[in-house]
Design a protein around this nucleic acid. Structure first.
Length: 426
RNA sequence: GGAAAGGUGGCUGAGUUGGCUUAAGGCGCACGAUUGGAAAUCGUGUGUGGGCUAAUACCCCACCGAGGGUUCGAAUCCCUCCCUUUCCGCCA
C-alpha cells in the first residue's frame, strides 16, 4: 500500500501519478479523515499521559491513608473519554486501512503514460517469428493428435478450462519445470523454494490480491485459505513481518508451483488450449532488494526470464507496460511475449515487475540498512516462465509437417536423450 | 480430531494474591576506559510502531502471541481466537 505520510506530505504528486492509471482515487477524503484521526489521537494520548502520572501517585496516596474516592471518580471520567476516543479512532483506522488497501501502487514516473495494452512499448525482440512451409497447427491440435494432451477428459474430471498432460506430454512438462528451476538456481543464483500451495488471507493481502480481487481467487471451503494464484504470494510473504539483516540482501528465490485462478472476468477469451486455464504450472522468480538497487535488479530479473526463452530458442519480444496496463501492485512491468503461430502474434509468457515498497508495506517486510535504520525493502517478481504457455509455444514453434514435435536442445538431457515426440514413439 | 502444558525484549530467563517493574538478572551486541596489543575486568548504551517536529534531537503514547473486556490502574484477572511443544487417535 501507499505511505499515508507521503500522501499527507505530497498529495499532488501522489494524485498525479495515480491519475496516470486512468482512475480517480479520492485522496482528499482520505486526508480529511486522517486529519480528524490525528486530532483525536492527540487528545487521547494526552489523557493517557495524565492517567499514567496519576497512577504512579496512587500507591503513595493510599499508603498515607488519603481518601482517593474523588480522584478515582475524576479518573473514571477521563478513562471513559479516552475509551470513546479510542473507539472512534479504531473505526477511522479501519476506514483508512480499507481505503489504502484499495489504492494501487503509483506507477514509476518514467514509464509510458497510456490507456491500455495498445500503448505499451516494444523494447526489444529476439529471433524472427517462426516460418513454416505449410499451414502450422495450433498446440491443442498437435497435442491431442500426438496423445500428449487431453482436454476432454480434464473437462470430464473437473470442468472447462482445465487440461491434462499425458505420457510424453506429462514428461515434457516436468522437463520444462526442471530445466527452468535448474537454470534459475545454478545460473541465476536463485534459491529454490517449494512453498505451500494454499495461503491465508493475510498473505493474499500482503501481495495485493486481496481485498480487491477476491473473486479472482479460489477459496478453500470451510477455511480461510486460498489456492495460490502464483508462487509470488507464498514466497513474497516468507519474509512478512520480518526485519531482514541488510548484509543478506539481495535475496533471490525461485519456486515451481501450480497456480489457480478463477478470473471470472476473462471468460470467453482464449477458450482453447493451454493459454488460459484455471490451473497452470509456473516457475517464479522473487527478489527482495535494497530500494536503490531495485530498478537494476528488475533488468537483471527480466534478463533471467529472457534467458530461458533464449535457451529454448523461442522467438519473443519484451514489452514495457504503460501506466494503464500495469498490475495493481506494480510500479513498472516488463512483459515477455512469445511468438505463438496459432495466434499469429506474440502472447504473454512472463510478467516481470518491480513493486518498490508497495508489497513490503502491505506485508511489513523491512531491512536494516548500513546506518542501522529500519526501512522497507523493494520486492520484485517475474515468471520464468508460465509452464503451460511454454509447453504450447514449444509445440507450435517446434512442430514438424508430419505432426511430430522436435525437442528443444536444452530439454533433451531432461528427457533422457529424447529428441522428438512422435505418435509412434509413445 | 482429543488431552495436557506453554507463548515475555536479538537470545536466555524472573515476574501470574493487579499499583515502589518506567519488564529484574544473565548472555550477546555497540561504544568508551584499561592495555604495547588482546583476553579478562569496569562503565555506558542497546527494540518496534505512532504522535509532535526542520530533525533519524527532546518529549509523549502504544506494544509481554492476537483481539476484546473488567478496573482509577492489567504482563498479572475474565472472554474469544492463533500458534508451539508433548502424548493419544487418524493418515501419505
Amino acid at each position: 500500500m501507499l505511505d499515508i505520510k507521503q500522501i499527507r506530505k505530497e498529495p499532488d504528486k501522489v494524485k498525479e501519478l495515480l491519475s496516470r492509471r486512468g482512475a480517480d482515487f479520492k485522496l482528499d477524503k482520505l486526508l480529511d479523515i486522517d486529519k480528524i484521526r490525528r486530532e483525536m489521537l492527540i487528545k487521547s494520548e494526552a489523557i493517557k499521559a495524565e492517567q499514567n502520572k496519576v497512577s504512579k501517585l496512587i500507591p503513595t496516596l493510599k499508603k498515607d491513608g488519603k481518601d482517593t474516592k474523588e480522584l478515582f471518580e475524576e479518573m473514571k471520567q477521563l478513562s471513559d473519554t479516552a475509551k470513546e476516543l479510542d473507539f472512534k479512532i479504531r473505526e477511522i483506522d479501519d476506514e483508512i486501512s480499507a481505503f489504502l488497501l484499495d489504492i494501487p501502487n503509483m506507477p514509476n514516473e518514467n514509464i509510458a503514460i497510456g490507456k491500455d495494452d495498445k500503448d505499451n512499448i516494444e523494447v526489444r525482440k529476439h529471433l524472427e517469428p517462426t516460418k513454416f512451409s505449410y499451414e502450422p497447427k495450433a498446440h491443442w491440435d498437435i497435442g491431442v493428435e500426438l496423445g500428449i494432451l487431453d482436454f476432454e477428459r480434464a473437462v470430464k474430471i473437473t470442468g472447462s478450462r482445465f487440461s491434462m498432460f499425458k505420457g510424453m506430454g506429462a514428461r515434457l512438462e516436468r522437463a520444462i519445470i526442471n530445466f527452468m528451476l535448474y537454470t534459475n538456481s545454478s545460473e541465476g543464483g536463485y534459491t529454490e523454494i517449494s512453498p505451500p500451495f494454499m495461503v491465508n488471507r493475510k498473505s493474499m493481502t500482503g501481495t495485493g490480491q486481496l481485498p480487491k480481487f477476491e473473486l479472482d481467487a479460489f477459496g478453500v471451503r470451510d477455511t480461510d485459505y486460498f489456492l495460490i494464484p502464483t508462487a509470488e504470494v507464498p514466497v513474497t510473504n516468507m519474509h512478512a513481518d520480518e526485519i531482514i539483516p541488510g548484509d543478506t540482501l539481495p535475496l533471490y528465490y525461485t519456486a515451481y508451483t501450480p497456480c489457480f485462478r478463477a478470473e471470472a472476468g476473462s471468460a470467453g477469451r482464449d477458450t482453447r488450449g493451454l493459454i488460459r486455464n484455471h490451473q497452470f504450472d509456473k516457475v517464479e522468480l522473487v527478489k527482495f532488494v535494497k530500494p536503490q538497487d531495485s530498478y537494476e535488479e528488475l533488468e537483471k530479473l527480466t534478463n533471467n526470464a529472457e534467458n530461458i526463452l533464449k535457451k529454448l530458442k523461442l522467438p519473443y519480444r519484451v514489452v514495457e507496460l504503460c501506466t494503464g496496463d500495469i498490475g495493481f501492485s506494480s510500479a513498472k512491468t516488463y512483459d515477455l511475449e512469445v511468438w505463438m503461430p496459432s495466434y499469429g502474434r506474440y502472447v504473454e509468457i512472463s510478467s516481470c515487475s518491480n513493486f518498490e515498497s508497495y508489497q513490503a508495506r502491505r506485508a511489513n517486510i523491512r531491512y536494516r540498512d548500513e546506518e542501522g535504520k529500519v526501512q522497507y525493502v523493494h520486492t520484485l517478481n517475474g515468471s520464468s516462465l508460465a509452464v503451460g504457455r511454454t509447453f504450447a509455444a514449444i509445440l507450435e514453434n517446434y512442430q514438424q509437417e508430419d505432426g511430430s514435435v522436435k525437442i528443444p536442445d536444452v530439454l533433451v538431457q531432461y528427457l533422457n536423450g529424447l529428441t522428438i515426440i512422435t505418435k509412434e514413439g509413445l
